[in-house]
Nucleic acid binder design. Structure first.
Lengths: 116, 116
DNA sequence: TGCTCCTGCCAAAAAAAGTTAGCAGGTGCC
DNA sequence: GGCACCTGCTAACTTTTTTTGGCAGGAGCA
């Protein structure tokens, strides 16, 4: 994933996903080695429920991806791995992307939420 | 500002400062041209109070800096400008920085808050 | 059957962030 | 004095995010 592929809104989402100590550690762990949820939770010493929330946020931002696999002994394992990314953030790149940022206002809130 | 100058905790703070549409627009505006608070608020069409909160967050993350100046006609103007930064975020750089991230646990929470 | 491992989801509480409105101060100018 | 511009602050509210705990399902193995 590259900066130039993103809109301003997507960048905001990616940065929000990165701006949490747990999630940075998750990315680091998964970047070193693909892993499944329960083991990852044990290694990072956080609860499974909490890890799942963070993983969901990272995945929806496009920073990690998951595959549901069945191990040899028949257990379902959800493996996560990192999506390679290179975000070169500079004042200049922010200028370029800021133009495509939408700020929710009251009168367009309905449309933004997919109202019909 | 460069990635290699930061600790994991500082990176978290910087990313948190960047992960807001208003603040990205503020950075873009100030990177184009240094500006003072009231005018910046008018240009971005947000309230002064709101802008000040966002500016404070950006400044404490080290992304912008401010100078209090007195204009020719005697008015106090607080000028903000962007601090040049280059953050090259990749899985590899996250791995390196994640090791220096501290997670607040109950028994060390007191020390982290500067208790004596 | 009972135990262990894997998965998922949801409700509720706690903590943090975002936002508004109103107050204060200062200057210069008609 | 009154108006327009600049600055700062804080209390209170709303919204979002983070975190915990519990519940349920599936599979293999003794």
């Amino acid at each position: 994933m590259n900066l130039s592929d993103l809109t301003g809104d997507e960048l905001t989402k990616v940065l929000a996903a990165l701006s949490n100590p747990h999630r940075l550690r998750v990315i680091a762990a998964v970047a070193k080695e693909r892993n499944y949820v329960s083991r990852l939770a044990r290694e990072l010493r956080i609860s499974r429920a909490l890890l799942q929330v963070h993983l969901r946020k990272l995945e929806s931002a496009g920073l990690v991806s998951s595959t549901l696999e069945v191990s040899e002994d028949g257990k379902a394992m959800k493996y996560y791995e990192v999506v390679p990314f290179a975000l070169n953030l500079t004042p200049g790149s922010v200028i370029a992307l800021a133009e495509t940022i939408t700020i929710a206002t009251d009168d367009e809130a309905g449309q933004a939420k997919g109202e019909r």
